[in-house]
């Protein structure tokens, strides 16, 4: 079977992510956070010291001591690209940020989504009214179209995307669960290597083509995580990762 992106082992699926990589991580708050892929990456870092100095792209900057917050706590994140680095327990990011030990690129949420989508679609830049006249537009080209001013924003690519899906088939077609979809379909397009944890992997045909959300062409590796943990549930249990 030539068209098979299923990997048997989660550790192997993340083993070649290098120091200094940019990593897009799906999820909005806890919905869609690929906790097991993140866990495997943290475990590898703790054992080997690699991959460190990562740039992580997500809407948020972690919550509590699980998921992205646990990556930050472990010391493997040099920079966050996000729209909203606040949460109910933002200590991991906030302490490092205020101490100047982690970099922040703050991007309006719609601009973040569109920059990622543009990268996936091969569009190097686009114009948006968002952030015009604000601090977040400083240094960016401005242009007038039909009497209104717009800010030029560039595409945002990544080396790797880590994504949580509901169903996958072995060719990489994906579905998601409710609002856990959020940034995942965009990130899958924008990363050089897209790694997915899916709750269940089915044979081709097992997902109705009308229901495919992310077509398999955007997916490089899939691992099955049959009983994934939900970040918000872990937070409420006071878990550490």
């Amino acid at each position: 079977m030539a068209m098979n992106v299923v990997w048997p082992d989660i550790k192997a699926a993340i083993a070649d992510i290098e120091d200094g990589s940019s990593v897009m991580i799906g999820g909005f708050g806890g919905a869609g956070a690929p906790i097991e892929l993140i866990g495997a990456l943290i475990e590898r870092y703790r054992k080997t010291g690699s991959p460190g100095s990562l740039t992580v792209v997500n809407n948020n900057a972690g919550n509590g001591a699980v998921g992205i917050a646990a990556m930050i706590d472990a010391g493997m994140v040099a920079k966050m690209v996000c729209s909203f680095p606040r949460s109910s327990d933002p200590k991991a990011f906030t302490e490092r940020y205020l101490a100047g030990r982690i970099e922040l690129e703050l991007v309006p949420q719609g601009t973040l989504a569109e920059r990622i989508r543009a990268a996936g679609a091969g569009i190097p830049a686009f114009y948006t009214p968002t952030s015009y006249g604000t601090q977040l537009a400083e240094g960016k080209p401005i242009a007038e179209f039909d009497g209104r001013y717009y800010v030029q924003e560039r595409w945002l690519k990544a080396d790797v995307a880590l994504i949580k899906a509901e169903l996958a088939d072995r060719t990489g077609n994906l579905t998601y669960n409710k609002a856990a979809r959020n940034f995942a379909p965009l990130m899958a397009m924008a990363a050089a290597t897209t790694i997915v944890q899916a709750k269940r992997i089915v044979e081709p045909g097992g997902i109705d083509p009308e229901h495919v959300v992310t077509p398999g062409i955007f997916v490089d590796r899939i691992v099955e995580v049959a009983d994934p943990r939900q970040e918000e549930v872990l937070l409420r249990e006071g878990a550490r990762q």
Binding site: F28, G29, G30, A31, G32, N59, S87, S88, Q109, G110, L112, A113, E114, I116, R117, T128, P129, T130, Y176, N177, K178, A179, A180, R181, N182, F183, A184, P185, L186, V213, Q230, E231, E232, V233
Partner: peptide
């Protein structure tokens, strides 16, 4: 917890609700 609003609070769905990804969501906005 996969069904939350932008404030990360749990919500429910009304009949006729729809899910979409973030670029579509902000296409609705922008």
């Amino acid at each position: 917890w996969d069904l939350i609003n932008a404030g990360k609070k749990p919500v429910t769905l009304k009949p006729g609700a729809a899910f979409f990804h973030h670029a579509d969501s902000f296409a609705m906005v922008r």
